[in-house]
């Protein structure tokens, strides 16, 4: 897979592999207390850099990781969405986080739907989960919009060491859901 050319496109968004130029927007995002409340909390800039490096490293070693989400109209980096299954993770996840200034526009489900297609069609996954902190009602709304449902409680490995709700669905369920919506 040519990671430099890999790109998913939706009506309003481009999804591509993260790059060095994403760092300023990435660092600002993970410094936002509100936006990171349910995904591990704020990170100082040096830790943010390590996070971006780890995401890229994951792309190159595993062949998949979260995409950078770019708003077509503005060219802005507005979040990270996509497959995520680090060592010890409770299943093959498609996850999302969007910068606070762009909440409420349906960007998370739009980007995540493109990623669901990609992991099922290209990576050959047979199921997808979303790990959601119990208090994160916004993400449960996104999961519901994707046709996923609550499955069980699960445990996230270190360094998170947290209990999470596991939402998700199978590939067949996703394809039926996509077909029904046309």
């Amino acid at each position: 897979m040519d990671l430099e050319r890999l790109q998913l496109e939706t009506p309003r968004l481009l999804l591509r592999v993260p790059r060095r130029e994403d760092f300023e927007a990435w660092a600002a995002f993970v410094a936002d207390e509100e936006a990171t409340r349910h995904i591990g909390g704020v990170q100082p800039r040096p830790v943010a850099w390590r996070g971006l490096a780890a995401m890229l490293g994951c792309w190159h070693l595993q062949g998949h990781a979260m995409f950078s989400v770019i708003e077509k109209a503005s060219g802005q980096w507005i979040g990270r969405v996509g497959p995520w299954q680090p060592e010890g993770w409770p299943g093959p996840e498609v996850g999302w986080s969007i910068v606070r200034s762009h909440w409420g526009r349906g960007y998370a489900p739009e980007a995540a739907a493109a990623c669901m297609d990609w992991v099922f069609d290209v990576l050959g996954w047979e199921e997808v989960i979303h790990t959601i902190e119990p208090a994160n009602e916004r993400s449960k709304v996104v999961a519901t919009k994707l046709g996923s449902r609550y499955l069980r409680m699960g445990q996230l490995p270190p360094p998170l060491d947290a209990t999470a709700e596991i939402w998700g669905q199978t590939r067949d369920e996703w394809r039926a859901f996509r077909a029904a919506r046309g």
């Binding site: 390590r50 971006l52 490096a53 995401m55 490293g57 070693l61």
Partner: peptide, 8 residues
């Protein structure tokens, strides 16, 4: 993962 990522 940080090390291969930093290479990139």
């Amino acid at each position: 993962l940080q090390m291969p990522g930093a290479w990139m």
